[in-house]
Write a protein that binds this DNA or RNA. Structure first.
Lengths: 215, 215
DNA sequence: GCATCTATCTATAAGAT
DNA sequence: TATCTTATAGATAGATG
């Protein structure tokens, strides 16, 4: 074996870093991967520990999309409890595929163009227990058309969440989704209803007088 | 000062916990708050460190929505570097309002219904530098109508991302975020193009042969 | 590049105030 | 109920194979 010099004998362990853009490209990439993984793990833990619903999307500086979400909260919980849940029968993405799922734009486009069918329809049209979501289907279809219209100009990402509830309290189930069209030339953009929340200073974002639970 | 008993003299410090749903309600709430904050912080750091774009949405078990996002990547970077950026002139939500912003459904609904205008239009219709995104506007409008149609049945959350790029490589700017209608009775639901990614086992999610950058 | 390793750094569970 | 205080669990920067 080789004799390493004294300085390289020991790892120096973690060092503190400033929160500013990492210059060295290789380091940036490594950090991106590590932290993205860590972020998604944290999100998963939050879901399980607190019965929360969460979704996260991260675009790398190169424009690659990474998505965290869960097909159903149950599936994620099962996963974290080490149970093996068959989610395929529900027509949803297995949790382990999604939690750290990578999405590559060109691939998505290809998939979209091919419009692969199975069992007589798009997979997402497959019947799900107690479906009856005509509106959702209608919405989805319309959304598709619209997206196509602007696909060459903007990146549109859509998240649709449909939750179940037994009582009035805890939503228990979910969906997540994604997708992105390929941006080619762009501009900055506009957003929605969130601004009014940002009325003035920090803690005043949410007005009083609502009876919804705080958690 | 008081003499505490020996057992309470010292904090016991952190203990290991299992990743499973927390039973005690008070603990769950505390944990939810702490971890949500932590998650959003991590997301912000990822954005800054790696020049990435990120957005995250968390629903508490009570159905309250919390959103992490950034109006422009620049604004978030400024924030983390301690610079004070005036984002109001761009018609975007100041970063500090968004990063840990809380969104309460009923409030959002109220805002939406009131359709508050300023300066002759919805705030999000305000001109932004180099706007020219007719398609985006068109899309947004259509989306609104569609969403109304299904608002009573499903919770729809839409994220629209429009990015800038100087070179062909790094998108540099913007995101936006948005909102959800109140679910009342629901079902589980369908999703989109993601399933094909989940073809079979883990690492094979993304097919080879594309020339896009890995980061 | 990807998987490990190790020394630290950071987040946070329980309590105390 | 919100904050503050530890001790400790967990995340991760940098080095290495």
């Amino acid at each position: 074996m080789e004799v390493a010099n004294v300085n390289s004998r020991k790892n120096m362990g973690r060092k503190k870093i400033e929160i500013r853009k990492i210059e060295k490209k290789s380091s940036l990439e490594v950090t991106f991967s590590k932290r993205r993984t860590g972020l998604f793990k944290k999100a998963g833990e939050l879901c399980v520990l607190c019965g929360a619903e969460a979704a996260a999307i991260v675009f790398s500086p190169g424009g690659r999309a990474f998505v965290f979400g869960h097909p159903t909260a149950d599936a994620v919980i099962d996963r974290f409890l080490g149970r093996d849940t068959d989610t395929s029968s529900r027509g949803v993405v297995p949790a382990e595929q999604v939690v750290h799922g990578q999405v590559q734009r060109q691939y998505l486009e290809a998939v979209e163009r091919s419009e692969v069918k199975e069992e007589g329809g798009f997979w997402w049209d497959a019947p799900i227990e107690n479906m009856g979501l005509n509106e959702l289907e209608q919405f989805k279809g319309s959304l598709e058309k619209l997206r196509e219209k602007v696909a060459d100009r903007v990146t549109v990402m859509t998240l649709m969440m449909v939750m179940e509830s037994e009582s009035g309290a805890g939503p228990s189930s979910t969906t997540m989704v994604e997708y992105a069209a390929p941006p080619q030339e762009y501009n900055s953009s506009a957003v929605l209803h969130a601004r009014d929340l940002a009325a003035d200073s920090h803690s005043q974002a949410v007005p009083q007088g609502f009876d919804e639970p705080r958690f």
